[in-house]
Simulated assay, not measured.
Amino acid sequence: MSYYLKVPARINILGNPSDAVEGDFATISMAISLYAHAIIEPSDKIVFEMRAPGSGNDNQSKDFPLNSVFECELSNSLIPMDDEPKLCKGAFNFLLKISPEFRSKICRRGFRLTTWSEVPRQSGLGGSSLFVILTLAALREFYHLDTQIMNNYVLAEMTQRIEENELGITCGFADRYVPIFGGLAYIDYRGKLFHKSITQEPFATYEILNRWAGKLSLVAITTGLKHDSGNIHHAMRTKYLEEYNTWYHKGGSKPPMIKYMERIWETAWKGKIALLNSEMETFGQMMNLNHGVVNDMMNYCGFQEGAGRLNNLLIQTALNQHALGAKLTGAGQGGSIYALVKPGKENELADVWEKQIKELNLQNASIYTPKISVQGLSIKDKENKTGLI
């Protein structure tokens, strides 16, 4: 049997980066209608195919040019990580290490896993995590692995451990939870700062808000400038943990990184209250405060341009156009920003940004209006299109 899988990208609206990467507090995050896709089908070998970006139709995937392909004979041995697709291979290896059930089944039949994505690479939308999630979910479905043991919370936790421990990417948890669970959510990460083994720390608490909150009128821009979020987070997480550990053991006044992250957390919980009360101007103010603190914190951590000169320029343009709030959604120094505007004003800001990116010669930039993806991870029987999740 073959399966088609789809998983949405995410934006962090408030509270980032306090998703247990530089402080274990909370974010308001939203799954958006940009997706990564996968097809898993029987094969006599183990095959990974990563195809060029496409439009998201599972019937079109074979028409996209190959970016990378890897195949090997059936075996329950670890796959070499010296070439692409490393995200998929890292997920496969991790599952081999922790799942006796998977190790016992992998030698009985092979698979071909084909993946592709609509999400721009290194755009600050959590795109790399999507390939890990798709690989784990596809293997879980294809090999009928125990879904109580490997439930969606565990899937999110595994994704974070794979990226951090197998692939060396410094990361938190928002990018791993939001694509799986979907919607607009307030996510609590308290107790997850040290990234202990799965079940040795709390799972994140995922509180859906879109059933009660009003619509967010958002406009987003991906600059097209590539950045490595792991490198940026590594510098800031290292600084945070150094100051936290010294303060925890020696006491005294709170160090700067703790103060920065507590202020960022405040934007998330106050923003939740404002959102549920439909107080969009207050919500926008929290966005502006969140970005200002992140900009100051990045300067403090040695990034001379803070959150990035170009990002700050585009954010200021949005505010000059009377946006209620504007901020980063990624790690800074590139990636994406978004703005909250009054309903019906989306096109006005998009037109101004469009003119600006031409003046700045940002040839790979793109502007879009993020729409909520209420559903997160979805899995269908490819033959009869039956929805499984």
Results as ranks from 00 to 15, higher is better:
residue 238 T to P: 04
residue 211 R to W: 05
residue 106 I to C: 01
residue 159 T to G: 12
residue 199 T to L: 14
residue 168 G to V: 04
residue 292 G to R: 12
residue 323 A to H: 04
residue 245 N to F: 11
residue 69 V to D: 03
residue 124 G to W: 08
residue 243 E to V: 06
residue 186 Y to M: 05
residue 349 L to K: 07
residue 258 I to A: 04
residue 102 F to Y: 10
residue 354 E to R: 15
residue 69 V to G: 04
residue 111 F to V: 11
residue 292 G to A: 12
residue 162 I to L: 03
residue 250 K to E: 14
residue 336 S to Q: 09
residue 333 Q to H: 05
residue 140 R to G: 00
residue 316 Q to S: 13
residue 330 G to R: 03
residue 307 A to M: 04
residue 205 T to S: 14
residue 110 G to E: 11
residue 56 G to W: 07
residue 312 N to Q: 07
residue 234 H to C: 09
residue 321 Q to R: 11
residue 259 K to N: 15
residue 334 G to F: 01
residue 241 L to W: 00
residue 354 E to G: 15
residue 94 F to N: 11
residue 296 D to T: 10
residue 284 G to W: 07
residue 63 D to Y: 09
residue 264 I to Y: 00
residue 346 E to G: 04
residue 157 E to N: 14
residue 25 F to T: 02
residue 139 L to F: 05
residue 293 V to R: 02
residue 142 F to W: 10
residue 180 I to A: 02
residue 16 N to R: 05
residue 24 D to H: 10
residue 207 E to P: 02
residue 334 G to V: 01
residue 264 I to C: 03
residue 275 L to S: 01
residue 46 I to Q: 12
residue 321 Q to F: 07
residue 13 I to T: 10
residue 236 M to E: 10
residue 282 T to H: 11
residue 302 G to R: 08
residue 158 M to G: 04
residue 291 H to R: 06
residue 114 T to H: 02
residue 1 M to A: 13
residue 348 E to T: 14
residue 235 A to H: 08
residue 248 Y to N: 11
residue 41 E to I: 07
residue 104 S to I: 06
residue 311 N to M: 09
residue 200 Q to D: 13
residue 252 G to M: 06
residue 183 G to Q: 05
residue 181 F to S: 12
residue 29 S to P: 05
residue 350 A to G: 11
residue 1 M to W: 06
residue 349 L to M: 10
residue 384 N to D: 15
residue 124 G to S: 09
residue 238 T to V: 08
residue 185 A to Y: 02
residue 165 N to K: 13
residue 129 S to I: 06
residue 368 Y to F: 15
residue 183 G to L: 06
residue 278 S to W: 09
residue 108 R to D: 14
residue 126 G to Y: 00
residue 135 T to K: 08
residue 108 R to S: 13
residue 29 S to A: 15
residue 247 W to V: 08
residue 237 R to H: 13
residue 158 M to W: 14
residue 243 E to I: 03
residue 224 G to V: 01
residue 128 S to P: 10
residue 84 E to H: 12
residue 100 P to S: 11
residue 334 G to H: 00
residue 317 T to P: 02
